[in-house]
Simulated assay, not measured.
Amino acid sequence: MSTRILLAAALGLATAPAFAQAPAWPDRPIRIVVPYGPGGGVDSFTRPVAAQLQAQLGQSVVVDNRAGAGGTIGVLNAARAPADGYTLLSGGVHQPMAEALYPQRGYRIDADFVPVAITAVVPNVLVVNPASGLTDLRTLMDRARATPDSLTYCSSGSGTSQHIIAEMFLRETGLRMLHVPYRGTAPAMNDLLAGVCPMMFDGMGTSAPQIQGQRLRPIALTVSRRSALFPDIPTMSEAGGPAIDAGTWYALWAPAGIPVPILARLRAEVRAALASPAVQRVWQQQGAEPSSVGEDRLETYVREETSRWSGLVTSLGLRAE
């Protein structure tokens, strides 16, 4: 046997273990951190994608709810995880909003994470309990103007998107209402349905089933155009209020530094999951639409949204409580 053949054989034996030690991703369960409690908008738009990814990848995809401090506890947990594709963060517009509210949060959403996909886009909607007597936006505004601070609105917590959008509305109208913050969307929604609080500026993802079941009355969308899935609900300006364009988008992120091949595979798998009939059916039920942001613009989009919402939160003078 020639020296060349022996050398090739030796090199082959030497490199074989190296290939064996580099298993294809994924070879173990994947964790998706949801920085809010179960039953809220982020949770509702995470679980269908997680279930579909699990079916596609043949590995468990576990949703890990880690609520607290306006979502910053869960985001920090994900930021500290290894950038190996086995920990993802599910969130949305709420994360750019938190940048100004929590200056000591320990991470930057646009620097410590890389976006995988915008998973859904939904309008926010002002909803009221039917027993409140608030039949339309003009009635609501007239009552608030006649008796300042007599009306209350609930939210999933101070500094959340529901709170910030409500304060946008109050600034534009000059009205005064009392804010009642809860620890998550689910308890706020329970009290809204029970009539404990009369109204909420909610994401369509959690309000859509209640609207369809006629347990909540939609007053106006806080976006610039009507929803194709709920065409009878007017925009805020159409209903006689200010022109507000504040919707909600949801997204998946991975810790910065994730290997490029794994990120590419992740994006392809999430893209397939979002196109699946199972996920599209749930999105339609929740009033969600696909995002128009291409993968080449994801990072730019997150930076722009972070700048936009940080400026707005600062101008409103809001503080995390």
Rank of each mutant, 00 (worst) to 15 (best):
A9S: 13
A16V: 12
A18V: 11
A20G: 10
A22E: 13
R31Y: 07
V33Y: 03
G39V: 10
V63S: 04
A69D: 11
T72A: 00
T72L: 08
I73S: 01
A81Y: 00
P82R: 14
L89K: 00
S90R: 00
S90A: 07
A100G: 05
I118M: 13
N124Y: 10
V128T: 05
N129D: 15
P130R: 10
S132M: 04
S132C: 12
D136Y: 05
A146W: 00
D149E: 05
L151V: 12
L151H: 03
Y153F: 15
S161C: 12
H163N: 15
I164M: 15
T173P: 01
M177Q: 02
Y182H: 12
N190E: 15
N190P: 06
L192R: 04
L192D: 02
P209K: 09
Q212I: 10
Q212A: 10
Q214V: 07
Q214A: 05
P218K: 05
A220P: 00
L221I: 13
S224D: 08
R225Q: 11
P231E: 07
D232I: 03
P234R: 00
G241D: 01
G247S: 14
G257S: 12
E269I: 07
P277D: 14
Q280T: 13
R281A: 15
Q286D: 08
A288T: 10
S291H: 13
V293P: 11
V293L: 13
E295N: 12
L298A: 13
R308P: 11
W309H: 02
L312S: 04
L316Y: 03
G317V: 14
G317R: 13
R319T: 14
